[in-house]
Amino acid sequence: MIHAVWVINKAGGLVFNRSYSDVLPPLPLNAVLILAGTLHGIHAITGRLDPTTNSKSRSGPSSGQGMEAFEAEGWGGRVWLSGTGTKFIVLHSIPHSGLDELLRRIYEIYADAVMKNPFHTPEMPINSSLFETRLQTLIAGVNT
């Protein structure tokens, strides 16, 4: 079960958020904006706490060493950082399979419906009904 999808731009601003289940209570937009900013910060810090020396570089948005997934009691989140610094977050129930594939599909839809749209301003909130309906179809397929 997918609870929600967020898209966070590289500055930590929430550009898209949609809820797909009523398991997690609805939050006012301002609260979600703050949480997205928090997550952005946490993501940066978690990359610095690395106890190993395996990481190649500790800087740059695409180093991809930050948090990938987190778990709470009964639900969790998956964070995926694209090469350009945009973060895609999926909140889901636990256990959940096929999240990597799902995030890849979301990114595809994002590339098709948002990035190929000449009227979209990068890093700004996503106002695209095409993106929303295609995402809706994708998530509905997973949530059944």
């Binding site: 997690l24 990359g47 106890p51 990481s55 060493q65 948090m67 990938e68 987190f70 778990e71 709470a72």
Partner: peptide, 17 residues
């Protein structure tokens, strides 16, 4: 905040730890 309950997060992971 997200769960609206006294839920605790229990773990997170990165590619290295």
């Amino acid at each position: 905040k997200l769960s609206g309950r006294e839920d605790l997060f229990t773990s997170y992971r990165t590619p290295t730890y």
